[in-house]
């Protein structure tokens, strides 16, 4: 597991999501990357039922799974605290259904093609909320390096050939952890932030309906 940058790729107006994904994939293939299966990152939201009298806001936490870390499960709280556990944690959460309940129709998923280019892993996929298309995600991982501040220069060089000016600065979650040893939990935090952004984007449209 090396340094990873995840970006949301905007869909230009008048273009459909799948066609933009296809264009990105073609671009990655032109770089010389080789297809190596698919990837999937999913995120469930859990909400507390019992509300403490002092706090009116219900507490939420998110459970994420990454196909790159098939034996692990990541639970992230509102405050950004991250717990990395075995997949058995899913069973534990379902046992807590009297206290925390899964929010309905809130499951987010990013799915797509996985590519290898030398030591780089490039993933291009689409994000969906409860089955409907929400946006596009591009993930680039440089496996040999463990410090984001060390390899940002070379990641930027590769990212700019894929996502252009979007990669002028590191993702905001990563920016605060540039000098830390990189862990998969940081990738998950990046995904969660993007998922939340997609969700916020989606809310006004739902209201207008």
């Amino acid at each position: 597991m090396g340094v990873t940058c995840v970006y949301a790729y905007p869909v230009p107006e008048g273009k459909s999501g799948p066609s933009v994904v296809e264009g990105l994939q073609r671009q990655v293939e032109l770089l010389g990357a080789v297809r190596s299966g698919t990837f999937c990152v999913d995120c469930d939201t859990f909400q507390s039922i019992l509300q403490s009298s002092m706090n009116s806001q219900p507490k939420t936490f998110y459970v994420l799974h990454d196909s790159e870390q098939p034996a692990s499960c990541f639970a992230i709280t509102d405050t950004g605290l991250c717990l990395t556990a075995d997949t058995l944690f899913d069973g534990l959460v379902s046992k807590l259904k009297n206290y925390y309940q899964q929010r309905k129709n809130a499951k987010m998923e990013a799915k797509g093609q996985r590519y290898e280019l030398g030591d780089f892993l490039i993933k291009v996929g689409s994000v969906s909320l409860a089955g409907s298309f929400k946006g596009i995600i591009v993930e680039v991982e440089y496996s040999p390096c463990v410090l984001a501040s060390d390899c940002w220069g070379l990641m930027k060089e590769l990212l700019q050939t894929v996502v252009g000016n979007l990669a002028d600065s590191p993702p905001s979650v990563l920016k605060m952890k540039m000098d830390e040893l990189y862990t998969p939990a940081i990738t998950m935090s990046q995904y969660l932030e993007l998922f939340n952004n997609f969700r916020k984007m989606a809310t006004p449209t739902q209201i207008s309906r």
Partner: peptide, 14 residues
């Protein structure tokens, strides 16, 4: 990972 090539000035080649 942090120093570019002394000749071509780029980070990546292949």
């Amino acid at each position: 990972f942090s120093a570019p090539c002394h000749k071509c000035g780029k980070f990546l080649q292949n």
